[in-house]
Nucleic acid binder design. Structure first.
Lengths: 123, 123
DNA sequence: CGTCTATGTTGACACATGTCGAACCAGCCG
DNA sequence: CGGCTGGTTCGACATGTGTCAACATAGACG
């Protein structure tokens, strides 16, 4: 589904510089630049609220969820919006407004990149 | 030593409270407690210096490295020690002193747990 | 014992981050 | 049109975090 070619590489709002990034962590030491890019992805999932939000979107039926469906994570609604924005900036989520509601869905490529870096340990 | 027989997941040979934790992120929304534990693992890899240190240990010949071999990451030596401690607290590294040097090695079970949570996206 | 090297710990500080209330925008609907 | 609901942005604050210099500890070695 991500075959859309709309990749504004200059916008600081969305950061699509999260392409297939780095080799498995066991292959060789990461360079400084690789580490910065990769750490940003892990950092985005390094907060409990963000992790719950992401998991809610990822496990939602249809692969997408509107904010109203996932915003019961114990924090205020502006905070939910703030975390969703962070996840979007990290390239892990995409958002789309349809009528009244805003729907979020996962960006599979970034997750695949992260899994690949840890994949050497997965049997 | 090993008292676990019922769980076919992973052998808990690491001392911290990081055991086989959570289902894949796509399976269901994480609970608050699961999210706290899991986010701590991702958070540990969410810093560029820590990621480089971890990658250096993971890719080092023999699966272990002494601090003197990996401390060339652009920060001072106390900072390296600080980050290694963080990685150890997160359950991603273990340390052992042999004579003058301290050797670090990866804890495979925690990495496997992280990879399993993202594994649904790996092609 | 004393000293040297290799790591870890402490204290301090600048900066990033998570959080909330209030204000603000975007569509629906009476 | 004017209000209503869903969602984002803003401003402010407290807390967390990365960093370093200085000091402390653990072995090796003379």
């Amino acid at each position: 589904m991500s075959n859309v070619k709309a990749l504004p590489l200059l916008e600081p709002d969305v950061d699509p510089a999260v392409e297939p990034c780095c080799p498995p962590l066991t292959e060789r030491p990461l360079t400084a630049e690789e580490a910065v890019r990769t750490a940003a992805m892990f950092k985005a999932l390094g907060d409990p609220v963000r992790l719950r939000l992401f998991s809610s979107v990822a496990s939602h039926q249809g692969g997408e969820a509107c904010v109203c469906d996932i915003s019961d994570v114990g924090v205020s609604q502006p905070t939910v919006s703030h975390h969703l924005k962070k996840l979007k900036e990290a390239g892990l989520l995409t958002s789309e407004r349809r009528g009244t509601w805003v729907y979020y869905r996962v960006a599979p490529s970034v997750l695949a990149a992260m899994a690949r870096m840890l994949g050497q340990y997965a049997p």
